[in-house]
Design a protein around this nucleic acid. Sequence first.
DNA 1: AAGAACTTCAACCGCCAACGT
DNA 2: GACGTTGGCGGTTGAAGTTCT
Length: 286
Amino acid sequence: MALVPIKAGLWQPDASHSFSHKVGKAATPSEKERDRGSGHRQNREESRRMAPAAAKTTRKGPWTEQEDLQLVWFVRLFGERRWDFLAKVSGLNRTGKSCRLRWVNYLHPGLKHGRMTPQEERLVLQLHAKWGNRWSRIARKLPGRTDNEIKNYWRTLMRKKAQERNGNAISSSSPSSSSTSSNAASHGIGSIPAGNSLDLSEVKGYTTDQIWNEIAASDSVSNLTFEEYKGGSGCSCMVGTPVASPIWEACESLWRIDTEDMTTMTSMPDFFESYCSKQRIDSQKH
DNA sequence: AAGAACTTCAACCGCCAACGT
DNA sequence: GACGTTGGCGGTTGAAGTTCT
């Protein structure tokens, strides 16, 4: 579900129909893809492996609603495996890797979308102190959270801490050295060694067991059905209350269809096209 | 109001282990 | 055992949103 930032770090469900991207952007997916996907970063690994003709048609960059729908559909059909195969048969001009990533980090029905709860934040701190940058391992202990999300959270946290330290140092020394380049500030601390430099004082007072108990209260999410999850019943801790979104409804309807029914449905392209047309019309009405 | 600075996070890259042939 | 394929993982990037000046 797309979430709208209502203030820094706070998100609410998107009232528009944008699904896969940050909201309110003027650029269409194709424009963004042009700007980003096909530009600077070449997929060297792929280029190395793939025939030039095949490499040309591989899409990169942000996913469109239709691609998301297609992916959900085909994952429902074939399961969460054989990503390369799935990428091929789905007709998505994406790599299997890209499909998997999109599914795991965004489309999976068990995912929470929203800020980390204080309990989750504390658990991340504890587990990172224990395991270091083993993000996937940490993520397994936080139902509904992805390694990517935790990694991003951690980097943000580290950046804040670094800035606080710099701020303190600067305020006691030279105010003129306060400006850092955006990229340096944003990306320069990505490789902080595991367990180093983190002040764990804020975790003090909580044992792992206590944290686990707190988490357990909101832990049932991983056992929820898509219906329950989307309805928000298992995710009371979310900052943004889940609200029905057209595309989630479409995905959900896909989720409900029996495999047998799916195999009898013949015209997926028509389905996607009609869905997208409807969304275009609806969005024009608003 | 406008532009600069900063923040967030989706998506990509490169590496590597597991697995099949 | 060598090789190719697949998918998982951690690190990195940069577009777009937000806040500040």
